[in-house]
Amino acid sequence: MAITFRKVNFIYSEGTPFSYHALKDIDLNITLGKVTAIIGATGSGKSTMVQHLNALLVPTEGEVEVGDHTIKAKAKNKNLKDLRKHVGLVFQFPEYQLFEETILKDVAFGPKNFGCTEEEANQRAKDALKVVGIPDDYYDRSPLDLSGGQKRRVAIAGILAMRPEVLVLDEPTAGLDPAGTKSMMQLFLDYNRKAGNTVILVTHNMDQVLKYCDEVVAVKDGRIAAHTDVKSFFRDPSIMEGTNMNPPFIIRFEELLKEKGFALKDTYGDPDSLAKAISKEMKR
């Protein structure tokens, strides 16, 4: 399985006065088994791009290859359901997609659609709810009575229960409290590290990129501005420029130290190793 974009262009409402060229000549190869961050300013085309991964949007030009599936422009694409079974997409603000009478049923909805038996789907739903931290006395409650953050967890569980090999998340932690954000991010990391799945994460939070991701794709005005591993991304400040983003706090701190004459050899990015490097430098 591989994920490749070839010369992908996407135009919203083509042929009307509202048409908008959202993606321009995207060539991209997403490494499997890693956590890839997609960053970029508001309106740069991140959500548009990730919706190509499970063929919710079909390129206006070019093609997207995901595993055995190739989604081509201007072609009748078949077997989308099978593709969607392997690529789970969690939308921006997914809490608005809940509809079942009970939380358990809602989470089991996806697996059932993809051919699981009732029992298996329920089992998967329970597992997924446990992972996102919804206690079992909630199972029979209506998903519509939950708080916003809880709804978000249930919605994410609904995708996790499908057990996709590629998990795509569009700003999953926007609007969550810091503790909730942390546990969510840990959950996605585990989904990658423990089970070897691919995770693709749209985010505005550079600290998350630094802490949880392996690779970065920076999008600017519908084009790929950069695609590298996280460390070299933050080592090269020129990449960040023009993406309307600020580097994480600790990276800025390192930059300032270097500016003031500290001989730091590397970009560390975590407090521990940075502290060690500083104390070594101080002793010298």
């Binding site: 969690v90 997914p94 608005y96 996806g110």
Partner: peptide, 13 residues
């Protein structure tokens, strides 16, 4: 359209 897409991701056909 948004909801349709979200449910399509969950296998609604």
């Amino acid at each position: 359209q948004r909801i349709m897409k979200a449910q399509a991701s969950r296998g609604v056909d």
